[in-house]
Amino acid sequence: MAGVGHMEEEAWKRKERLKSLKRKQNHTDDNGADKDAPGDITEEPKESLPKPVFRSYKPQDESLKEAVLPKIKPADVTEKIQSHLEASKTEHVLDEVDLVNLAPRKPDWDLKRDVSKKLAKLERRTQRAIVELIRERLKTGGEDLALMVNASQADRPSDDDDD
């Protein structure tokens, strides 16, 4: 039971500390007298209440009408709008339109892009195969190389014949 008495004593000390803190907070000394007003014991410090501000409410009481904010008229923005409209007008017009940029891409453009590396590799192989075929033909035919080249150029249509 000694523990219970000890706890009561601690609670009593805690209450005394709280009372002293309240007195310090209220600016009173240990006698209960106010430090600012030494003769007045019953007077408590007044708390300042927030003053209401009325933005959209019109109070009926005369004392509250002082807290009404004056009505504010919106600023005239027509000059700003006119300056923005004038700044946005463009006087130059494009004479020519690039049709490549306007035309939609073909549906297979991405496939061609992805396959272009493989096609380049196949083109090189095709050229090598053609060269090998020509060499074999020259070996088996036994004809003169100059005659073969001249004959192949004579078979091709020239660009000058289109006149």
Rank of each mutant, 00 (worst) to 15 (best):
S116D: 06
V97Q: 07
A120N: 07
S152H: 03
D95F: 02
D108E: 13
M148V: 15
P157L: 11
K118V: 05
R156E: 03
E96V: 09
D144Y: 02
E143H: 05
E123R: 11
S158C: 04
R137P: 00
E143S: 06
A151T: 13
L102S: 08
R137D: 10
L122M: 04
G141W: 01
T140E: 15
R105K: 14
L145M: 09
D114H: 03
E143A: 07
I130M: 04
R113S: 03
Q153N: 10
N150H: 06
L145G: 01
L119G: 00
L119D: 06
D98Q: 10
G142H: 00
L99R: 12
L99T: 12
E143L: 07
E143K: 08
D159N: 09
N150T: 12
R113N: 02
T140S: 11
S116Y: 03
K139D: 07
P107N: 12
L102M: 15
V149S: 00
D98G: 08
E136P: 00
I134T: 03
R105W: 05
E132Y: 05
H92I: 10
V115P: 01
L94Q: 08
A146D: 14
V115H: 04
Q127K: 12
I134F: 05
D110W: 01
S152A: 15
A129L: 07
D159K: 08
R135Y: 02
V100M: 10
I134K: 09
E136C: 04
V100Q: 13
K117N: 04
M148L: 12
S116T: 07
N101Y: 10
P157W: 03
K139W: 02
T90E: 12
K139Y: 04
R135C: 02
R128Q: 15
R156F: 04
V131M: 04
K117E: 08
P104F: 06
V100E: 13
E96M: 07
L119E: 14
M148T: 09
R156L: 08
E96N: 13
I130W: 00
D110Q: 11
S152Y: 06
E132V: 10
W109D: 13
P104D: 15
A120C: 03
R124S: 06
E132T: 15
V97L: 12
